[in-house]
Write a protein that binds this DNA or RNA. Sequence first.
RNA 1: GUCCCCAUCGUCUAGUUCGGCCAAGGACACCGCCCUUUCACGGCGGCGACGGGGGUUCAAAUCCCCCUGGGGACGCCA
Length: 471
Amino acid sequence: MPNVVTRFAPSPTGRLTIGGVRTALFSWLYARRHEGKFILRIEDTDQERSTPENVQVILDSLSWLGIDWDEGPYFQARRMELYRKEAERLVAEGKAYRCVCTKEELDARRKEMEARKEKPRYDGRCRSVPEAAKAGLPSVIRFRTPPDGETEVRDLVLKKTIVFRNSELDDLILIRSDGWPTYNFVVAVDDSSMRVTHVLRGDDHLNNTPKQILIYDALGYPVPHFGHFPLIHGTEGGKMSKREGKDFDDPSSLGYYPRHGFLPEAVVNYLARLGWGHGDQEIFTVEELKSLFSLEGTNNSASRFDMTKLLHLDAHWIKAADPARLARLLLPFLKDRGIEASEGERLVKVVRTLQERSRTLEEMADAAEFYFREKPTDPKASAKFLTPEIAPVLRDIAEAFSSLDPFTPSGMEETLHAVVERHGGNLKVHQPIRVALTGGTASPGLFEVMEILGRDEVVRRLGGAAGRIGA
RNA sequence: GUCCCCAUCGUCUAGUUCGGCCAAGGACACCGCCCUUUCACGGCGGCGACGGGGGUUCAAAUCCCCCUGGGGACGCCA
């Protein structure tokens, strides 16, 4: 029996948020660090909103990040019998009771309480009605929360004990009128039946924890350890909200990142540093995280999501990545731009020239375009560098290049030098050549660009540019 | 409204556990300079914070209280 069992329990009711992913990452790292077990459980008790597509998104996202699980995925929808049985047991033991109040009645009472500025809660009117009197009526099962006393939550992340007065807690619903169980109940049943030792989750669940502890106690199961990570806020502050639109258009969704050419190791590195630290170290490999992650190192205040820093880390990991791997990953981005490149030595060379100047694969694909097809020349660059005076020089260079064999950087340099000398020396030809070749003023080193483009293509583009100047 | 959490540069954070090593360190961003065939990379330097007020103490970013500010939760959602 491992001494640490953690789980990630997302609900497939929407996209997977970046905050949820961080919770998954921390839970996984904690299990790995302690050579424990990590469980994936899908909380699909909300029949209205759970979809198979959302389940798939969760699975794909975790796989992309490299987060693997030892058990599961479990689906709560397939564990209904267990929940009903446990709920009935609580009713039989007097620890829960049936409530026949209708939704409408409850809504009306809630509104009244809000109007009176009270904390909205169930008034408990079915509490003392004998079970026999409610038989046959449509009902829900509610938990009989102890009216007095306090429940203590020892939190491993906050490193403190939080005390809740039981009188603040509500008689929450365990089983809905349609027979489906609710979150606070299943989570307690499942975490105990799956022998979860450390429940790690977002801060937004802190208020649920005392309720769940009470349920554990009522059920007679041992209470696990808890840890609540502060939420990740959006750039404007506040809980990162799910925007409308496609999942991959929204940076608060994990789906955004693979789609926009981020490397998983960069996302993992960034997320790990958001709310956790290990001295001054900024760069972490997954392996390092697996051996270093600890709850003691977590920060207990909310953090803000910063795309700029993520981009910086992505740039770092692109520089560190194997060019052949990047070449393979780049293919779909090229394809999006209508470029059918193939894996191979040339593409790897292209990647090498772009690694130091791309923050994402998307940027790399944009920067790579000129290698595969001539781009329209940037008008500003053209006006500045493709001047009438330079046209004959470019023509001469093209001609000199056409017989340069082999077409090597040292040969190119000598040739350039010779042509410039012939035109009186002291001519700036690099930028005009760059513009002629790449369509813009920024590119990788001129000689490596020419080498990859190849002599014929270089000659062709140079000649073409010179021709267009005259026109 | 009630309950709960949080509080170091613009942002992520180190330092808080055992108060003194902190005239507060690192990273991102920003601004200079260097390198340089462009753009980048890299190197060097700069800007920049303990929210406020009370305590406790010889000594507080570190401990306590209050205020303020931020966030979360109050569902037959999870």
